[in-house]
Structure formats: structure tokens, C-alpha cells
Design a protein around this nucleic acid. Structure first.
Lengths: 130, 130
DNA sequence: GCTTGACCTTCCTGTTGCTGGAAGCCTTAT
DNA sequence: ATAAGGCTTCCAGCAACAGGAAGGTCAAGC
């Protein structure tokens, strides 16, 4: 099937699919006219990539996951380790974002928000220790 | 003062400071030898940038904040609006990350994580609707 | 059989926010 | 005098694509 159909079925934009080929995550066949020709298995890989990327795995991590995916003798422990590490990363990011949100919200709350020029947010950004 | 000192005082790497000059966020003086010469005010701006960037403001937003910062007649309402919009963005990101984290954790929890090749995580990524 | 329009191809550029390195001055300390 | 370190510029590249130009191809309709 052609790239447009593969895009529709996998949920990825065609541009992204071509990019994934360029960085060698998928290797579709080529028709006589030069058009890319995707098998069901290719589409499967693409959908896999879309989900994994959507879950926050980097392209490098997706590459590793794909090699596990391709490897019938992989140990599920390997995959679990990667998933749990990712959960840890996400937790760290969540904590960071939360504290950041609170700092900003606190600054905004102390701002009277009118026409006067003095503003605690600006002052907080300019010199606050936090 | 020279860039090294400015870096130390502002908490930004020298490379980043030069980059900020390139994109015209700061405009230090130059000494006779061609060295950049930072005033206290420059360092202040740099520290402001470091904090704002650390709070998740984009460089474009920082530029806007700096122009407010420079403008003595600004309304604090403008700043408050930006800050609150940013809080909203962060909340959205938090929600997204949280759901992502839960999906991954759920996948990991159902994985026995031993030497056997079958792995619910891989299967979940390969075909799950979620 | 010819046109139209939708697709496909490649290639190049731009995005965001830096970071690293190379080559070469300048300064400071010994 | 010399060595180490800091400063300068410029060039390259990272992630992960997105946008667009220029051109080839294909199926349908008239």
C-alpha cells in the first residue's frame, strides 16, 4: 500500500513516515514507479512507533523497543526495565513541572493585575531566590 | 566584567550568554580588546532570563517579559495575563503527562518481567487501543 | 486522447535553544 | 619566556519533524 494509506492506518503523517525511513526505523519496499510500498507489518511498526512516541519514548528508545519487538527471544524483563525507567523519568518531570506551576501561580496570585506598573511577578523573576 | 564572571553571577553558561546576545536579548559593551563587558544591569537581565526560562517561558516569551521589564509604564495586568496563561499550559501538560504515566505504569504492572519472551508492554504498544 | 487533480517523489530550509569543537588572539602567573 | 587559561569567531549538529518547491505518476472524466 502507498504512503497515504499507511499514514491513515498508522495515524502518522506521511512526512513523519518518510522521516522514519530516513533514520532507518522502517524500510518499506519500492514499486516499479519508485513509490513506497508498505506491508501490513510495516504499518504495524508505524503504529507501534506512534504509540511509543506518544507515550514519551524518544526515537532512540523506540529504536531499542523495536529491536526488542523484532527479537522473538527477548526477555520481557528488558522491556519492563525500560518502561519503569520511563515512569521514573516522567515522575521526575511531573514533580518539576508541579513546583514550577506553584511558583508561577504564587507569583500571579500576589499580583494585583491592574494598571499600576509595579508587579510582583516581574520582581520575583528579577531577583527572588526561588 | 568579562563573560566568565557574568556566567558565574547569572548562573548561565558562557555559551548560552553569547547565544542570548546573538538573538539580541542582551547587548553587552565591548572592551578595546574585543572582549564582552557586562554591566550589573546586564547580569540582572541574564539572571532574569535564567529564572524565566527555568519556569518554562519560551525565549519568545522571555523577550516579551523583558520588554515589559524594561517598560516602566507597563501594566502589571499584562504580566499577570502571561503568567496565568503559562499556568494553564503547565496544567494541561501535567494532565497529559499524568495520563501517560498511568498508561505506562499499568502496562509495566501487567508484565511479569522475567526471561519469557511474551510481554504485555510490547503487545500493548503493538496493538492496544489505548 | 487529453486534461485535471490528487497523489507521489526528492531536496532544501526552518524550527527551538542551545552545546560542542576548532583555530586563533589575549591575559595572567610563574 | 612560556604555559595555562580565558576570550574571540565561526561551523556543525542535536531532536523530530514541518513546510514548500519542482517535478513524476496515475485514474477518472469528457
Amino acid at each position: 500500500m502507498k504512503i497515504g494509506d499507511a499514514a491513515q492506518r498508522s495515524g502518522l503523517p506521511a512526512k513523519t513516515i518518510r522521516y522514519y525511513e530516513e533514520i532507518e526505523l522502517v524500510a518499506p519496499a519500492r514499486g516499479a514507479n519508485g513509490y513506497r510500498d508498505y506491508s501490513d507489518n510495516d504499518v504495524h511498526r508505524l503504529a507501534f512507533l506512534r504509540r511509543a512516541r506518544g507515550l514519551g519514548f524518544s526515537v532512540a528508545e523506540c529504536r531499542a523497543l523495536l529491536s526488542l519487538y523484532d527479537d522473538d527471544s527477548r526477555a520481557s524483563a528488558d522491556v519492563k526495565r525500560m518502561a519503569l525507567a520511563k515512569v521514573g523519568e516522567i515522575d521526575a518531570k511531573l514533580a518539576e513541572l508541579t513546583s514550577l506551576r506553584d511558583t508561577l501561580a504564587r507569583l500571579a496570585a500576589t499580583c494585583h493585575g491592574d494598571d499600576r506598573p509595579d508587579c510582583p511577578i516581574i520582581e520575583g523573576l528579577a531577583g527572588a531566590t526561588s
